[in-house]
Design a protein around this nucleic acid. Structure first.
Length: 202
DNA sequence: TGCCAGGCCCTCTTTAGGGCCTT
């Protein structure tokens, strides 16, 4: 596991729950190496059945676009190779992890990274933010954006930028110069009220 | 046909309920 590399990923899906039969329709991801995006991954995938109007409207991904896409299994096999050996980051990671686990299980593939969640971290670092939706946090931290949210690659890039801002803010508050992934995971589970005290001791 | 999540986190809590996030 390369400690200085993470994959920031985002799924677009047919709905909220793979346990209810929902499938992935797009995966987007960026590879962050020492704080720089070095690779991108973006593919639509055909879930094998039509998506509803809400999803077409929400994502801008249409049934016509998916009709020419490769099946989920083909895309996810390529994605499994892309993430091999790296830790993973997503905004509300529990959501993306459920779909990653579900889609990879269907093709008997696996991955070896751990997840960290930018939503859980932001709730601790930015307790005064209006809310902790990805788009709100991007505005709150003055991250440059053209507003094209709800597509997988764009959201993964914005999550990556937010991630780097959060790492930088942690470094500014502490004497830590290269924030370990394990520290992020620990911070993300800590009671919110303890965060400032904890960071002050680092 | 009709149903429709799950984890986190707060509080008027723990024998529970509801808002926040993700599509």
């Amino acid at each position: 596991m390369n400690a200085h590399t993470v994959i920031v990923l985002d799924f677009e899906t047919t709905g909220l729950s793979p346990d209810n039969g929902d499938r992935a329709i797009e995966i987007g991801a960026v590879k962050l190496v020492n704080g720089v995006i070095t690779e991108r991954f973006q593919e639509l995938m055909d879930p094998g059945r039509p998506i509803n109007y809400f999803i077409e409207d929400y994502t801008g991904i249409t049934n016509q676009m998916l009709s020419s896409a490769a099946p989920c299994g083909e895309v996810m096999a390529r994605f499994a190779d892309f993430i091999q050996g790296h830790n993973l980051v997503a905004h509300n990671a529990s959501f993306d992890k459920r779909f990653l686990d579900s889609e990879l299980q269907r093709i008997s593939a696996d991955y070896d990274g751990d997840f960290a969640c930018s939503l859980l971290l932001s709730r601790r670092l930015y307790q005064d933010a209006p809310n902790h939706k990805l788009g709100t946090l991007v505005n709150y931290k003055n991250i440059e954006s053209n507003g094209s949210f709800h597509r997988a690659l764009y959201d993964s890039e914005m999550t990556a930028k937010l991630w780097l801002v959060m790492l930088n803010d942690i470094e500014q508050q502490t004497s830590v110069s290269d924030v370990p992934f394990s520290l992020i995971q620990r911070l993300s589970k800590m009671p919110k009220k303890n965060i400032d005290t904890f960071l002050a001791k680092l």
